[in-house]
Nucleic acid binder design. Sequence first.
DNA 1: CCTGCTATGTGCCCAGAATCACAATGGTAG
DNA 2: CTACCATTGTGATTCTGGGCACATAGCAGG
Lengths: 210, 210
Amino acid sequence: MKASKIPAATITRLSIYSRALENLLTQGGAPVVSSKRLAELCGVNPAQIRKDLAYFGQFGVRGVGYYIKELLFDIRKILGLNKDWNLAIVGMGNLGCALVAHQNFAKQGYRFVCAFDADPNKIGHKLATGLEISPVQDLIEVCRETKAEIGVICTPPERAQEIANRFYQVPVSGILNFAPVQLQTCEGCKIENVDFTVKLDNLAYYLSMS
Amino acid sequence: MKASKIPAATITRLSIYSRALENLLTQGGAPVVSSKRLAELCGVNPAQIRKDLAYFGQFGVRGVGYYIKELLFDIRKILGLNKDWNLAIVGMGNLGCALVAHQNFAKQGYRFVCAFDADPNKIGHKLATGLEISPVQDLIEVCRETKAEIGVICTPPERAQEIANRFYQVPVSGILNFAPVQLQTCEGCKIENVDFTVKLDNLAYYLSMS
DNA sequence: CCTGCTATGTGCCCAGAATCACAATGGTAG
DNA sequence: CTACCATTGTGATTCTGGGCACATAGCAGG
Ligand SMILES: NC(=O)c1ccc[n+]([C@@H]2O[C@H](COP(=O)([O-])OP(=O)(O)OC[C@H]3O[C@@H](n4cnc5c(N)ncnc54)[C@H](O)[C@@H]3O)[C@@H](O)[C@H]2O)c1
Ligand SMILES: NC(=O)c1ccc[n+]([C@@H]2O[C@H](COP(=O)([O-])OP(=O)(O)OC[C@H]3O[C@@H](n4cnc5c(N)ncnc54)[C@H](O)[C@@H]3O)[C@@H](O)[C@H]2O)c1
């Protein structure tokens, strides 16, 4: 598939473009946007946008620009957001609960279909969304029942690998990992790490430079 | 300064190396580590590690490897983590509270010195750490009093720019932004975005490809 | 003291990504 | 119908970053 030829950075930017387009839509205004204007909103080079889109086809009208609504639809389709995705989350602590409570995910088509914790006090507890916390021992079984496709790890770092291994057995096809460890990968399962500390460290570096 | 010649990716990796080194330290074992072993732990190429470090000097012993404790110290110094950093946080909702409750930040020398919200019900409330939530109107004043250096934005996206503008006035020298918007930048203030949705979108793309 | 081994430090090369610049083209106005 | 304008789509160019491979240097053992 041509997928392999497309830079990862392009995919990340597509996601950012889609958010800017959503904002333009809700704000109303002209139904078209030029690559120049969109570039300003996203903080990138206009040619970059045109080239990113060119990987997937032709979406604009020369001399006019891009029809916002159509482009948004096309980008979401490229990103695979024209379907809902089922998420399983493990570790219902501070962060885990914040994620499940977050509205935007549902709006984008990401649904939490099961939640797990190891703490007996939490198991059985119902979250605001109606989701009930299951014991982590049942992870594989429940994930299969609920057809989870993406796993989200919010446990302490020393438990993360063990949870990942179980996800591999389900199997899920992707993992979003919030624990600050480098997970061992597994054929057929794509991992994305979200790491706040790394971002803070970056800031610290640049600030102590200047 | 030579800073500008160093790839941003290098700084990010340094942060990851430092975490791996911390793990090695607490686990005990040999006091030295080779670039090969460290590379395995971090999921990168050994030459990459040596090259990253070479930007800043010579830290290893040929034929032996790197002394873990010393290297960790040196990397933390490079990253500017040999001092504490004062953080100001705005928006004490689900995410904001999770961040303040998080132990790791304090361990790394990141201290929350003030917290703000617009909700009258939250103002005056004391967090577990003893930190009291201040009204967002007082942001500039309180940030100056508490010597905040880095701002953390956890408000809804439509409020984020307005908060950033106030941070610019303090001024803080860096902002960690969790709201899914592209903030307008300001000379002298470095911005880092943490964006979960983008990561999920990346997953969605790769999963719908294969 | 000398020899051999091992892992670092680094010059060189290659790949991929960002930017530039221009030709192609749809829309519009006269 | 024609000519002009604005903005896209894309080939060419530049630049940055990653990986290879080897020379270099410290250590250990005899
Ligand atoms: N909270 C933050 O702001 C923040 C920031 C950066 C990184 N993180 C990382 O995110 C993760 C979670 O952070 P948190 O603040 O929510 O921690 P937390 O302690 O509030 O929550 C951890 C949860 O995981 C559960 N758990 C522990 N072991 C488990 C297991 N084996 N199986 C299933 N569940 C288990 C615990 O019962 C608890 O509910 C940690 O790895 C942390 O380092 C958190
Ligand atoms: N919770 C998540 O998992 C998650 C994930 C991705 C992104 N985000 C983003 O992080 C931000 C916060 O998310 P959350 O889940 O904590 O939302 P939340 O609604 O729980 O909290 C938002 C808080 O901001 C406060 N606030 C609103 N306007 C304010 C203002 N002008 N000044 C100061 N405070 C103000 C509110 O009173 C509230 O306490 C949002 O931008 C959200 O999109 C959150």
